[in-house]
Amino acid sequence: MFDLSGQVALVTGSSRGIGYAAARALGLQGATVVLNGRSANTLDAAAAALQEEGVKVQIAPFDILDIDQSIAAVDAVRDSLGKIDILFSNAGIQHREPLLSFPQQEFERIISGNLTAQWALGRHIAVGMAKQGYGRIIFTGSITAIRGKPQITAYTAAKAALHGMVRQWAAELSEAGITVNAIAPGYVATELTRNLWGDEAFNTWLQERVPQKKWGEPDDIASAVVFMAARESRFVTGQVLAVDGGLSSCMM
């Protein structure tokens, strides 16, 4: 089950963390994976590590904020590999500041990176998927779109809209053989959350608030990505799956 041999998977934001773990998991299931990030050097190192495990991999350096560059890079991938079967649209950006002092310019930048860029790149890839009559589109959502959190007003707004977009796209793309879903990660131990690992107060809160009383690992998200990318998930679309140890499901 979940054999992805012969399929091509593009994973944005995949030089490290959740994106890298997802690309690795997809590759170990047989997919040819295309790694994306802004730095070619970082991507080369990630690709080399995957190749040592027998994963078929290419790199596609581009910045998701540059939509024209992103679309050109996707077209180059299609020219090279012939198709894109799976998109895990994971790259995103963040800005933390209290609502009352949050600059509108930053709000618009975060909305652009976490919503507009996702829409534009995803739509472009969906055109090719529709022509081949098959595709899997998976977005990284957020539990902050399910439960509010201070100081990330733009991010929360963008991810909430992204969750809505998942449902709308599922309604529109299903007849073309494309499923569209999102994963909403909880607190996952990555380089981006490193500053919280050693925060005693935060870890006490996490132990009290998360039913499983632990941090998630990138592989926890990666396994959900493999499921949503597989042919076996053909009847699952328009869904947002929280992978968060139960954080968003209960009041504690």
Rank of each mutant, 00 (worst) to 15 (best):
A23W: 05
W169G: 01
V225A: 08
D3C: 04
T237K: 07
Q239H: 04
A117K: 03
A170C: 13
Q132A: 11
V8K: 04
I125S: 02
A9C: 06
E108R: 00
V180R: 01
E172S: 13
M165C: 09
V11P: 05
I138N: 05
L28R: 02
T190Q: 07
A182Q: 00
E106D: 04
A242Y: 03
P98H: 10
E108F: 00
A45M: 15
A47Y: 11
Y155P: 06
G186K: 00
A120C: 13
T42D: 15
S249F: 07
L99A: 14
I178A: 03
F139E: 07
A91W: 04
Q168F: 08
V33A: 12
L50K: 01
A120V: 15
G17P: 11
G216M: 13
A189F: 08
D68Q: 14
K131V: 14
V226C: 03
P103N: 15
G92M: 01
G135F: 07
I178V: 12
P185F: 00
I71V: 15
E200M: 05
T140N: 02
A242V: 08
L100R: 15
L247Q: 12
T190Y: 08
G246W: 03
M228Y: 09
S223W: 03
G177Y: 07
V225S: 06
H95S: 12
G37H: 13
E97I: 08
G122W: 11
L26M: 07
N195I: 10
A154W: 04
L28F: 06
V33S: 00
E208Y: 08
P103L: 15
I86S: 08
L173N: 06
K149P: 14
A72D: 12
S249W: 07
L65G: 09
G216R: 05
Q69G: 11
T204N: 10
M252H: 08
I137K: 01
D244T: 06
P185R: 02
A189P: 02
A160F: 02
A40W: 15
L196T: 09
